[in-house]
Design a protein around this nucleic acid. Structure first.
Lengths: 256, 256
DNA sequence: GGGATCGTTTCATAATATAAAATCGGCCCG
DNA sequence: CGGGCCGATTTTATATTATGAAACGATCCC
């Protein structure tokens, strides 16, 4: 709700939105009197605004005097979802994170037993270039974001992955023991991010967090990678927070 | 867009909706000038209304002067979807269909290899009572709605079903041959409804059509059943049309 | 540097939304 | 069956707001 002092307003639109917000708060249908009281509007004013919203299908009048959110909102919402693109939504946030930390910022998605890098922001002026490019793949267990995906699935699915894909070593630090990996994934669930400590590439470490869509599904991962001597574990909070901001831009609404 | 003569209007809400409709028509972001021209609004008026919608997150301003539909619409749309219930949405339509045809109207959903009846509208005053009650199940191949679901899946899935569940006869008319069933399902795909000609129960016939959700998924089926001598194949159009109306009430938007 | 174009802001006033009052509809009770 | 009560709906005078012409700002191009 815009603040009357700081934002432009059109009173009748603000009133309309306050009626919509009141309907949001009601799990079931709401009647006119309730809506007028909750919004502080005169009942005849509330009635007029609701009638116009009914005409526009933003609100549905189930029976005289009883209202609920209308089907046009679902139609419009699906258009928004259809047009959203995690890569496009993520890019401005990745750029900001890169400017804050001066390290490579990646976006990856899961494809079967691998993560695939779909976007990357870095500065080619860096002395020691991190060799990860868009389109490359890596096994789930050896990457930060991969471990975020495995943590999401639960212990049984992680065990199945281990049996199916094998916990192959890419470096001497790769987690190749299922008990060790399981314990690590438990940690990931608790802290909401994962770390890759030279597990995918010698000398390179990484912090990753998950990105969710409007249904709460884990659809992508955000990660920051750097040479191990430069990576600061304190960046984990920034990575997790940025991943959450991207999630919100995708329509994710955190639940209690 | 409400007609100015017949519906209540609030000018600024109608103007706001015309801006939203213009943004709907633009697959990508639209600029202020375009939006003003398309809606017939003065640019400063369009600017003011868009600014208020940006504050309310109905619209997103990507960069100065460039707009797209906002994330609040996705949030509201998901609330609508979350609250929708096919049974509840279908009931008024089922009642109307029952009043028109004076026969039993059923709502069923698929569970694995069976359909389950979840709602029914009939008149217990009828002489010959159709013995189908809410909660009962029937195999897919022997019911009208079941055949609608099988038709949706494609020939391979239908063959797999036949092998897995078996095409058991419930009456002498049950389609027990996979070639005959396959041909029937092809017909169902073409005509958009299915018929059960005493395949589930001797003396009882049925016409069924599919109900889709806002994602286009087949989520339920509507059917009319009657003693065979009373069932009129011309009712198929009514059944299909009513199933489509329920689909729309669920947020389904037909595509070209 | 100037012109063109689009976006944004200002403010006088034309136009509209508001809400008080009246009316309607439904329900309950005696 | 009639009256009372309450919520919903409609009417309409006018208080208040949304409008758009004009001015200003930003950017681009010649």
């Amino acid at each position: 709700m815009p603040d009357a002092q700081t934002k432009s307003t059109i009173q009748v639109i603000d009133r309309m939105m306050s009626l919509i917000d009141a309907l949001v708060r009601h799990p079931g249908p709401a009647n006119l009197k309730q809506l007028a009281v909750e919004t502080g509007l005169h009942p005849s004013t509330a009635h007029r605004i609701l009638a116009v919203m009914v005409d526009n299908r933003l609100v549905d009048r189930i029976e005289p005097g009883t209202y609920r959110l209308g089907i046009r909102l679902l139609e419009l919402g699906n258009l928004v979802r259809f047009r959203l693109n995690v890569r496009q939504e993520a890019l401005p946030f990745m750029q900001r994170l890169h400017e804050a930390l001066h390290e490579t910022v990646n976006l990856s998605v899961r494809q079967g037993d691998e993560v695939v890098y779909v976007e990357r922001v870095d500065s080619s002026a860096h002395m020691m270039r991190v060799v990860q490019t868009v389109g490359t793949r890596a096994p789930l267990h050896a990457t930060a974001v991969g471990k975020v995906f495995l943590a999401e699935d639960g212990a049984d699915a992680a065990n199945a992955y281990a049996q199916r894909a094998g916990l192959n070593r890419l470096t001497e630090h790769t987690l190749a023991d299922i008990a060790v990996l399981g314990s690590e994934l438990g940690q990931v669930r608790l802290q909401g991010y994962a770390m890759d400590r030279e597990e995918a590439e010698k000398g390179v470490s990484c912090i990753g967090a998950g990105i969710r869509d409007d249904d709460g599904r884990l659809v992508a991962g955000l990660s920051v990678s750097a040479p191990s001597d430069r990576l600061d574990p304190a960046w984990a909070a920034r990575v997790r927070e940025t991943a959450e901001q991207i999630s919100r831009a995708m329509g994710y609404v955190p639940r209690a």
